[in-house]
Design a binder for these strands. Structure first.
Length: 349
DNA sequence: AAGGCGGGGAG
DNA sequence: CTCCCAGCCTT
């Protein structure tokens, strides 16, 4: 039996019931695929349900504010996906008259849709014979065929796409594509794959040669940069007892683009109370304070894949009214990074 | 060709 | 702790 036949048989026996599998509506499949990029099914599923609920059609998504989209995306990470999702929805409405592109080539024109996602949508929704190549597929193919070309090299990317295209089952591409990914996620997992009762264990090169633990090969590892964040939380209470603070949007490049945060003083090293008492004006301008209190003494280390953010929150009690103040009840309306959301949750204003 | 971009779960 | 997840975009 061929590789693809075994994958298909395995899939029919083992496929999970997932929300997006109840539909071939390209809008919903696209939503699920963007959400699941570099994201586990368990983490992405509640976000998928929330997006379908809040934006039932591409028109609803296109006419939303970016703010709403980012707020729903909050906590999922890789926020460019949310910005591109919103931009692509507008493209579908404006350039494709609200009708989702129905082939691989056109799908690639959408923001945030690359080779993998265009292949997934075109195969699942339109039966186009495009083999998907995601992290699961790299692992399954590299092991089964014993390929040690680095999966993230230019050569490897090209090689695995053509190999995937060669071994797929074009007549059953919808199930085959989902099947090989599911197989990679459940059976041929990164750690401790279930080789003992694997339907491919009589012909898997990696198993035969004892290379299961060394394949796939991946180049380099990301270097982590340490950064030192000091969030200054202005706290002002007016004569009526209403509390206010300040929050603003991150602009430009870098992490958390277009999300919101408290005034930030970034430094070259950990700062202490004496440093903050002198330097808080650098970010709070002419706000007058008579008291600065450390919220946390030891820096919280918020870990991104490529940065470690050593973070201290400082409570800066403000004496006088100031411009652009925000009632504290409104801060939950803003899309914020998890680091900020955790603070807001723990610190009850 | 290489680097930037989140957050969380598994081992 | 390390690895990596239904990747894409920019430089």
């Amino acid at each position: 039996m061929s590789f693809s036949s075994k994958i298909l048989d395995w899939y029919h026996e083992n496929k999970r019931s997932l929300p997006w599998r109840k539909s071939t509506d390209p809008y919903k499949i696209w939503l699920s695929e963007i959400i699941l990029q570099q994201t586990r099914v368990a983490q992405g599923t509640p976000y998928y349900l929330s997006f379908v609920e809040n934006f039932p059609t591409v028109y609803d998504l296109a006419s939303a504010n970016e703010e709403q989209v980012l707020k729903l995306w909050q906590g999922l990470g890789y926020y460019s996906r949310a910005r591109n999702l919103h931009a692509a929805a507008k493209m579908v409405v404006e350039q494709y008259n609200g009708k989702f592109p129905d082939n691989y080539k056109k799908l690639l024109t959408l923001k945030g849709v690359g080779d993998y996602t265009a292949s997934a949508i075109s195969s699942i929704c339109f039966n186009e014979a495009q083999a998907v190549v995601d992290g699961n597929v790299y692992r399954v193919l590299s092991r089964y065929y014993g390929i040690d070309t680095p999966i993230n090299s230019t050569e490897g990317i090209k090689y695995f796409k053509s190999l995937a295209q060669k071994v797929m089952d074009p007549a059953n591409i919808r199930d085959y594509n989902q099947g090989i990914m599911e197989f990679g996620a459940i059976q041929c997992s990164p750690k401790k794959p279930l080789c003992l009762h694997c339907p491919l264990n009589d012909s898997c090169v990696a198993l035969e040669k004892g290379l299961v633990d060394t394949l796939p090969v991946k180049l380099k590892k990301v270097k982590v940069r340490n950064r030192y964040f000091n969030y200054l939380i202005p706290i002002y209470k007016d004569a009526d007892g209403n509390q206010f603070t300040s929050i603003h949007q991150r602009i430009g490049k870098g992490i958390w683009q277009n999300l919101w945060q408290f005034p930030l003083l970034e430094s070259d090293d950990v700062l202490e109370i004496d440093d903050i008492s002198i330097r808080y004006k650098e970010v709070l301008g002419d706000m007058k304070s008579n008291e600065v209190i450390a919220y946390n003494v030891n820096a919280i280390v918020h870990k991104l894949s490529h940065q470690h953010l050593h973070t201290k929150f400082w409570l800066v009690y403000i004496n006088d009214d100031f411009a652009n103040k925000i009632p504290v009840e409104e801060i939950s309306d803003f899309p914020v990074p998890v680091l900020i959301a955790d603070f807001i949750k723990a610190f009850k204003f």
